[in-house]
C-alpha cells in the first residue's frame, strides 16, 4: 500500500492492569483517503482510537502526525496537534446543554479570534453544506441519530481540520441512515480534502467507504491493505468474521464504484 502518509503508527502498545490490549501496532494513515480500521469485538479498535487521538497515552511506541509524535506530546504542542484533527464519536457526543449552532461554533469560540458575525457565517456555511441549517437552533436530543451525526461532522470540520476520526459512526442507525452517513463521510472527505480514519465493524459500510483497510485482531495488525485484497490477506478467523456479516466485499465495492460513476 503506497501513498502520502499523514499518520504513522509505530509499535504502539497499551495494557490495562497488566493485560496487554495492543501488542506493537503498526500501520499508516494515507493522506486524503478513507482509512478504515476493522476487527471483531475485543480486538483493540476502540483502544487504538483512544491512542490515535491521544485520549490516552500509549505505554510504548510512536504515533507520528506529519512527523510529530502525538503519543508523547504535552501542553501547547498537544493542543496544537489536536486542533488539526476532528473527532466524531460513536453517539455523536454533542454537548446536550447547547443547541446545534453553539455546538458547531464551540471550537471556533475556543480557538479563534473570529468576530461573532464571522463565526455565524462560518457555522451556517458548514451547516448548509451538510444540509442541516434548518436545525441550527434545535437542541441535540430533538434530532434524529443521522442528524446528530451530521452535526458532529460539522463540528469536527469547522476548524478546517486535516484529519477526522470516526468512531463506529453507523452504530445504532437503520440501514438507510447508515448509507447516508457513509455518503456523508465520503462527501466530507472529497469536498474538504480530508483524511478520514473510520473505526467500524459494520462490514457493508466498511467496503462502501474504505480506500484502505487495517485489520486488528487481539491487539495485532494482521493486515493493512486495500479492500479488494483484504480477503486474501487475513486469517481464516477474520475471513469468517467478514463473511459472517453476510457482505461480499466485491459486490459492495462494485456497487460503490457504479454509484460514484453515476454521480450525485
Amino acid at each position: 500500500m503506497k501513498g502520502d502518509v499523514i499518520v504513522e503508527v509505530r509499535g504502539v502498545t497499551k495494557s490495562y492492569g497488566g493485560r496487554a490490549v495492543l501488542h506493537g501496532v503498526d500501520f499508516d494513515v494515507l493522506r486524503g483517503k478513507t482509512n478504515v480500521i476493522i476487527g471483531p469485538s475485543g480486538s483493540g479498535k476502540s483502544v487504538m482510537m483512544r491512542q490515535l487521538i491521544r485520549l490516552e497515552e500509549p505505554d510504548g511506541g510512536q504515533i507520528l502526525f506529519d512527523g510529530v509524535d502525538i503519543a508523547h506530546a504535552k501542553g501547547k504542542a498537544l493542543s496544537a496537534l489536536r486542533r488539526r484533527f476532528g473527532m466524531v464519536f460513536q453517539h455523536s457526543a454533542l454537548f446536550d446543554f447547547m443547541n446545534v449552532f453553539d455546538n458547531v461554533a464551540f471550537p471556533l469560540r475556543e480557538h479563534t479570534k473570529l468576530s461573532r458575525a464571522e463565526i455565524r457565517d462560518r457555522v451556517f456555511h458548514r451547516l448548509e453544506t451538510l444540509g442541516i441549517a434548518d436545525a441550527a437552533y434545535k437542541m441535540p436530543p430533538e434530532l434524529s441519530g443521522g442528524m446528530q451525526r451530521r452535526v458532529a461532522v460539522a463540528r469536527a470540520l469547522v476548524l478546517e481540520t486535516e484529519l477526522v476520526v470516526y468512531d463506529e459512526p453507523t452504530t445504532g442507525l437503520d440501514p438507510l441512515t447508515t448509507r447516508t452517513v457513509d455518503e456523508l463521510i465520503l462527501e466530507a472527505g472529497e469536498r474538504f480534502g480530508l483524511t478520514s480514519v473510520v473505526i467500524s465493524h459494520d462490514m457493508a459500510s466498511v467496503f462502501r467507504i474504505a480506500d484502505t483497510v487495517t485489520v486488528l485482531h487481539f491487539g495485532h495488525v494482521i493486515a493493512s491493505t486495500t479492500p479488494d485484497r483484504i480477503m486474501d490477506e487475513v486469517t481464516d478467523e477474520v475471513r469468517e468474521f467478514i463473511l459472517a456479516s453476510g457482505v461480499s466485499p466485491t459486490s459492495v465495492m462494485r456497487g460503490r464504484a457504479s454509484s460514484r460513476d453515476e454521480g450525485p
Partner: peptide
Amino acid sequence: DALKTMAV
C-alpha cells in the same frame, strides 16, 4: 472526551 479532543 469530546472536550479533550477539541483541545479544551
